[in-house]
Computed example of a mutant assay.
Amino acid sequence: MLVEREAMTTRPLDRTGLGGALTRSVRFAEAAPAATVRRLRDVDVAAARARLRRGAAAVAAGIAGAAADAAAAYAAERHQFGGPLTNLPTVRQSLLDQATRTAVALTTALGTDDGSVQTLAAMRHACDAAIEVAAAALQSHGGYGYLTEYPAERYLRDAVSLRAATDTHAAAAPAFRALVGPGPRREDGMS
């Protein structure tokens, strides 16, 4: 359904980590005139949902990429123990792991078809990878990663916010049931 602005009231909430986007609650008028609410017909909801999920997966891969790039730049310029942090094998391994997770998330996001389970899996994988990469990038910054002056903490907030907004884990259950069926019933009547 499409709802005209006149049939809604909004109230600002707290800002989220998604680029400072202002989050709002929305209430719909109970007695909205019929002209302000239009029911959409002939819309391929599954295809629209798949496009949104691919887009969310691409955004998550972008967050992961930005976090990995920030970690690599910080490690290259930060000197400790007589040289840049990138001279340390554990730091190099962490940066490689971050880059690998980012590449896999991006490849998965861009390589999905319109299948609901495939796009859901790509979105879920990319959101989880974004959180893992952003957390590792924050660790690469050490204690400075928690400061708002560095982008690492923002990338982690953005990744967590995106996964919460897409609710990848809750969305997986109906998609999986549609793929494999409801499953066996227990003898006690519980499913």
Rank of each mutant, 00 (worst) to 15 (best):
A66C: 06
Y146W: 06
T102Q: 11
V91Q: 09
T148V: 11
A152L: 12
L120F: 04
P151W: 05
L120Y: 02
Q80T: 12
A121V: 03
T102V: 12
A67W: 10
A73N: 03
V45M: 07
T119D: 10
A105L: 04
G145T: 04
R78P: 00
L156N: 00
L85V: 05
A70V: 05
L88S: 00
A130Q: 00
T86H: 00
N87D: 06
A134I: 03
A137Y: 06
D97T: 14
A57S: 05
R49M: 15
R51M: 15
T36Y: 14
L156Y: 01
G55P: 04
G145V: 05
G55A: 08
Y144T: 06
A50Y: 01
E153Q: 09
A60Y: 00
S94L: 04
D42A: 06
Q80C: 07
D113K: 11
T90N: 10
Y74M: 14
A66R: 13
Q139C: 08
A56S: 03
A109C: 06
A122Y: 01
C127T: 11
R41M: 07
Y144I: 08
A103L: 06
A46R: 14
A130L: 01
Q80A: 15
G83C: 09
E132Q: 08
Q139F: 05
V37L: 14
E132Y: 14
A32K: 06
A122T: 10
E149K: 07
V104P: 02
A60F: 01
A76S: 02
L110Q: 08
E153N: 04
V91M: 14
V45Q: 13
A137G: 03
V37E: 05
T90H: 11
A58I: 08
D69R: 01
H125I: 00
S94Q: 09
R54E: 10
L120W: 04
E132D: 10
Y144H: 12
A99V: 04
V43F: 09
A136G: 13
G111N: 04
G143W: 06
G83D: 12
C127W: 01
F81K: 05
A71I: 12
A68T: 12
G115C: 08
I131G: 00
L52P: 13
H125W: 02
F81D: 04
R54V: 10
D113S: 12
A75S: 13
T36L: 15
T36G: 13
A72L: 06
A136T: 09
Y155T: 02
I63F: 10
Q98A: 14
G62E: 11
R51Y: 10
A136F: 08
V37H: 03
T119E: 06
A32Q: 15
V59E: 10
A64M: 03
R38C: 07
P84F: 00
R39C: 03
